[in-house]
Every structure is written in structure tokens, then in C-alpha cells.
Design a binder for these strands. Structure first.
Ligand SMILES: [Zn+2]
Ligand SMILES: [Zn+2]
Ligand SMILES: [Zn+2]
Ligand SMILES: [Zn+2]
Lengths: 160, 160
DNA sequence: ACGGCATTTGTTATATTGTATCATGCGTGC
DNA sequence: GCACGCATGATACAATATAACAAATGCCGT
């Protein structure tokens, strides 16, 4: 049976709380959480689901900001580096981490029917990967696990 | 401890054997293994490591073939569908499957130092993922596992 | 406050990866 | 031969990501 990390806050479901937490975190660490970085993070949070870099760009422009793709990608790199955002390689999209202040290996359940993505942190998966890599003499820096399929809601509704 | 699938042939290391096996397989199944499809597969095999779609295109052209990207992508879709090729989402590249005739969930060890990729089939990883997804009520269609890190060779040589 | 320095952002241009659409070829069976 | 289905060609374009250099901004020691 799998063991999931316990989350007291699900940041992704409450943008305001997540933003406040980010403010506090960066205040504490002294890392610069500039207006642009904050706005991009807010856009990602309010999207409520994975969002593409060019969608972020559009929403920046909606807010009167003239920006180029590179600006968005730079901020994304920053947010990923700071563990507040995950990148989903399979669908070229970005989403807010549910527990940014707790270092973790994550797995993503990507629904091919409705496009929703659920972040989980299953230690059994992480342990199995670590062990498999170790057997091959491979030193893991980042284990990417993106599980394509159909979410519970869509399966129930027979959408797929 | 991890359990690896046992391979009598490592197709990726012997292009001629792999091609002959593919010929036989498609002969048997009646699926059309056209000259273009065969040539693309051969290019992927001879690359010996993951290769990008546009690199495949270049090599097609080297062989006097005038082709457009779409042709390559169509063939790639076919080869992936037939399980002879895997796509690596993390690095946007394609590589030959080591055991195409044996349906399997695969994991990929991607070396960030030398670019080599090793395909493994660790049942413990696959089981853990299946169990984690089941707990979330998620129906898995394709579990993508791409493990970034440093391979044994590079770690030994201190390349990273 | 000022000057020097590092970091961040802007600007412009370009690279890389992947698709859409319609036309053409080509083999299989009637 | 002809109709059909599948594979490929041809042309155009969309989507994603990066390079290179300039300008702005914040930080820090004086
Ligand atoms: Zn996370
Ligand atoms: Zn769904
Ligand atoms: Zn394989
Ligand atoms: Zn290596």
C-alpha cells in the first residue's frame, strides 16, 4: 500500500494562501520575489490546472504588461528552481507545486480526457526508482514520473 | 530488490539483428513495414542513442531522400504504436526499444553528462506506480518514467 | 547620497519541435 | 480497369523554447 505525504495546505486550491506563503518564504530566504515573478506565479496558481508558457504570456499581456516569451521562461526557470512550480514535460505545461516548502519527489497523474493533473508524492514509487537506478549504478538527480491515463471523475462519468 | 526483465537480445546494440527481427515481425503480423518506415527505423537503430526527429530527417536526406518533417513524425508515430520505438519526452528524442516484441512498461535512465540513455524494465517501479494510481482512482494508460542523472561511466570518470 | 556591481528585465531575432491540409501515388481486391 | 484504403509528398504553418545584447533596477560599501 502506498504512503502519501500529508499536506496541511493544498496551495494549488487556494491562490491567495499560496501567494501569501510564497511572500513569507521569499521574505525569509531573502531571495527576490519580484513583481513579475509574483504575477507569473499568481497566474499559474489561478489557472488551477497546468498552463502553457504562451498562455501565461497572454495573461500577462491582458494585465497591460508587454512581455516576450523569454521573460516568461526565465521566470519559470526561477520558480522551478525555487520548487514553487513543476514542469510537465509530457504536455509542455507548468503547474504550482502543492507543497513547495517541503522537498519531495513528485508524480503526476495526467488525465487524457479532461486535462486535469494531480500531483502526488508516493514514497513507494520514489523508493523503487531510487533502488532501480542504484542497481544500474546511476546517480539520480531528478526522477520524472508522468502517468498518462484517465482520472477518477472521467472514468466514473464515462468520458473515456 | 529490483527485478529486471531478462533480454536474450539487446536489439539496440545490433542494428542488423534488430532490423531482421522487425522484418520477420511485420511479415508475421501483416502490418506494412514500408521502405520509408524501415529506413527510419534503421536510422534510429544505427544512431545507437536517442535521436531527434530533425536529425532523422537530415539523415534521410543524406541518403538522397527528399522528405518533410511530417513524414518523419508519421513514421515515428507508427513505430511507437508498434512498440519498436520509444519517445523520450524530456529530451524530445526517439530511441529503439530493446525488446519490442515483449510488451513492457519501461523506465529510462538519462545521463545529463554524456547524453546516453538506458532503457530498463523494473517491475517494482511499475507495480508501485500502478498501486499509487489505483489508490487515486486513476486508470493508467501509459506510465512515463524518465530518470535524469549521471550514468555509471560518467560518475566513475568524474565527468559529473 | 553616490558609485560600482550583480541581478533582473527588455528588445529583437532566431532556433527547435511538431501539425494541418490537400494532393498524389500505390497496392489490393472486385 | 476501377474503386477503395492506406501511405507518402508538398506546402504552409503553429507551438515551444533559446541566443545575444541592451537597459533598468536593486543592493551594498563608502
Ligand atoms: Zn510538488
Ligand atoms: Zn479527467
Ligand atoms: Zn522498450
Ligand atoms: Zn554518462
Amino acid at each position: 500500500m502506498s504512503v502519501f505525504a500529508h499536506h496541511t495546505h493544498d496551495f494549488a486550491s487556494d491562490p491567495d494562501t499560496a501567494l501569501a506563503a510564497a511572500d513569507a518564504f521569499f521574505q525569509k530566504t531573502g531571495v527576490r520575489f519580484t513583481p513579475l515573478r509574483r504575477r507569473v506565479f499568481e497566474i499559474i496558481l489561478r489557472a488551477g490546472k497546468p498552463i502553457g508558457a504562451y498562455d501565461i504570456l497572454e495573461r500577462l499581456r491582458d494585465h497591460g504588461k508587454i512581455a516576450a516569451p523569454i521573460s516568461v521562461y526565465r521566470v519559470l526557470d526561477f520558480l522551478i528552481e525555487q520548487r514553487f512550480v513543476h514542469r510537465l514535460a509530457t504536455i509542455n505545461a507548468y503547474m504550482a507545486c502543492v507543497t513547495p516548502e517541503d522537498p519531495h519527489a513528485a508524480q503526476f497523474l495526467i488525465c487524457q480526457s479532461c486535462g486535469s493533473v494531480t500531483e502526488i508524492s508516493d514514497q513507494a514509487v520514489d523508493k523503487a526508482i531510487a533502488e532501480g537506478a542504484r542497481t544500474a549504478g546511476f546517480r539520480v538527480s531528478y526522477p520524472l514520473v508522468e502517468i498518462m491515463g484517465v482520472c477518477a471523475d472521467c472514468a466514473r462519468d464515462g468520458k473515456a
